[in-house]
């Protein structure tokens, strides 16, 4: 149905839009609420934002013109997927202020794509754009995990990038631990 198999690919796609719009800070908030049977994904950036005309265009694949090609087909596909899975899609934006994208789904819906490889997605996002900070917060039931790259950048300073091999190892271990705990999986003995 869509070009992406995983919701985390959509998250990456929207993050890329924000990074290219000059954002210095992006918030990604994922909430998995089993009691309400909802999955919600919110992405907020402080990039250049869009005017109303552009905002209307980005959710409509049919009126997309060549000048909007750079936005890609990612957003209409995410909207379609959310609406197909008993959810909603909303995008708000203001020129000079940034953009907020929210997609919700019925968590248990049979057609809902999996979140997929969040660890790989988050590492790609934070390493590939060293000037964009990410606050990734993921809640599953009553468990929560947060990664705030502002903390990491503050410690590392300008001299050591997140792509340093030893820092990458730290980042991988930190995310793996956090995501396992979120799912309630036991940690491997080390």
């Amino acid at each position: 149905m869509t070009v992406f198999r995983e919701l985390s690919q959509h998250i990456l796609d929207i993050y890329e839009n924000g990074a290219k719009a000059g954002a210095s800070l992006v918030f990604i908030n994922i909430v998995e609420d089993f009691e309400q049977d909802r999955l919600s994904i919110a992405i907020r950036d402080n990039g250049s934002g869009m005017d109303e005309a552009m905002l209307r265009r980005v959710t409509d694949p049919w009126v997309t013109t060549r000048t909007t090609r750079k936005v890609g087909l990612g957003i209409p596909f995410l909207k379609q997927t959310a609406e197909m899975c008993g959810g909603d899609f909303e995008i708000r934006s203001e020129l000079g202020q940034g953009t907020v994208t929210v997609a919700t789904f019925q968590h248990s819906h049979i057609d809902r794509p999996p979140l997929g490889d969040l660890m790989g997605t988050v590492v790609c996002m934070v390493v590939g754009y060293p000037n964009v900070d990410l606050v990734y917060r993921h809640t599953v039931g009553d468990r929560e995990f947060t990664l705030d790259t502002r903390e990491l950048h503050e410690i590392l300073g300008p001299g050591v990038p997140l792509s340093d091999p030893e820092v990458l190892g730290f980042l991988h271990a930190m995310l793996e631990e956090g995501l396992r705990e979120l799912k309630g999986e036991p940690l491997p003995a080390s």
Binding site: L152, I155, L156, G159, V160, D164, E166, F170
Partner: peptide, 9 residues
């Protein structure tokens, strides 16, 4: 991470 930073530098 602070220790990793020192080694990386």
């Amino acid at each position: 991470l602070r220790k990793i930073k020192e080694r990386a530098l």
